[in-house]
Design a protein around this nucleic acid. Structure first.
Length: 278
DNA sequence: ATGACTCATTACATGAGA
């Protein structure tokens, strides 16, 4: 089974890119982030015509997560237990559309769009760290319930774990994504029993998943590694390969992120026949 | 080569992204 995660930066603006990618990559499950569309306007039909079921959660033009699957799609969950809410000062906090769970081919997949943080002093950074901590707690609980659970936490984590995950740390002095608290909150998933499999399989420095639209960042290969896949022990044991679909960034009108793909060995728990819910 | 990011929105400026 092959799964991928992709911050698509608007599923409507890049619908053809997604459909082309599904056809070319033959992924069984595609987790999307930043769909930027409310549920009523999500383009379900093109996914279905391509042979994929699709679940989505979007409240407005910001955030938005989805999961497309051709190996079943069951127990869809908008948000994880304990997911924190966020609101501007004076406004009612809301649980934003940043996490969507679904069981596909026997694997519990979470499509995650971790909050940005905006700046180290911004309330959004407090929210970001709380989001990661609550997610870690929930993920630890799933393993406590079932140590053999097949769980994949995939998406845009908005954290740069290592200095070698950017082109030049001098460009990130005082910036978000690289701070010690953010890195600790990210690394805590290892303490919860999960493994970040994309680095296991692709440890090379300067392996990027994102290049800013501005200042010719892609042409200069000045990118960031911020999209990852934390897998439970039983699922980690079945990882066969990880691939970065870097060519997607070369397309005209590309997303600023590329798809990150994880291939799993077939076993008795992971199914590639449609309709399995695990 | 005299450019310079992209998206959605009760849109023509703003908020958000990283």
């Amino acid at each position: 089974m092959k799964i991928a995660t992709w911050n698509i930066n608007s599923v409507r603006a890049r619908l053809q890119a997604v459909l082309d990618y599904l056809a070319e990559s033959q992924v069984d499950v595609l987790a999307l982030q930043e769909t930027k569309v409310k549920d009523a306007a999500f383009p379900e039909e093109p996914f279905q015509a391509a042979g994929y079921q699709v679940a989505h959660w979007g409240l407005n033009q910001w955030n938005g997560v989805a999961i497309a699957s051709r190996v079943g799609l069951a127990d869809v969950a908008p948000g994880f237990p304990g997911q924190p809410a966020f609101g501007k000062p004076g406004q009612e906090p809301v649980v934003e559309a940043r996490a969507l769970g679904a069981t596909c081919g026997g694997v519990r997949i979470w499509s995650l769009y971790v909050p940005h943080g905006r700046s180290l002093e911004d309330p959004h950074m407090v929210y970001k760290l709380a989001f990661l901590e609550r997610l870690r707690q929930a993920a630890a609980g799933w393993l406590a319930d079932d140590p053999d659970a097949l769980v994949a936490l995939v998406g845009d984590w908005n954290v740069v774990p290592l200095d070698t995950d950017v082109w030049d740390m001098a460009a990130f002095d005082g910036a978000t994504h690289v701070s010690a608290p953010e890195r600790a909150a990210f690394q805590a998933f290892a303490g919860a029993g999960y493994s970040e499999v994309t680095r296991q399989f692709l440890p090379q420095p300067h392996t990027y998943t994102y290049w800013d639209y501005q200042q010719l960042r892609f042409r200069r290969n000045q990118g960031m590694r911020i999209d990852f896949a934390w897998c439970s022990p039983a699922l980690t044991a079945g990882v066969a390969a990880v691939q970065m679909a870097r060519d997607q960034r070369k397309r005209s009108g590309a997303s600023d992120h590329i798809p990150v793909e994880v291939v799993f060995l077939p076993n008795r728990s992971i199914s590639v026949s449609a309709g399995q819910s695990g």
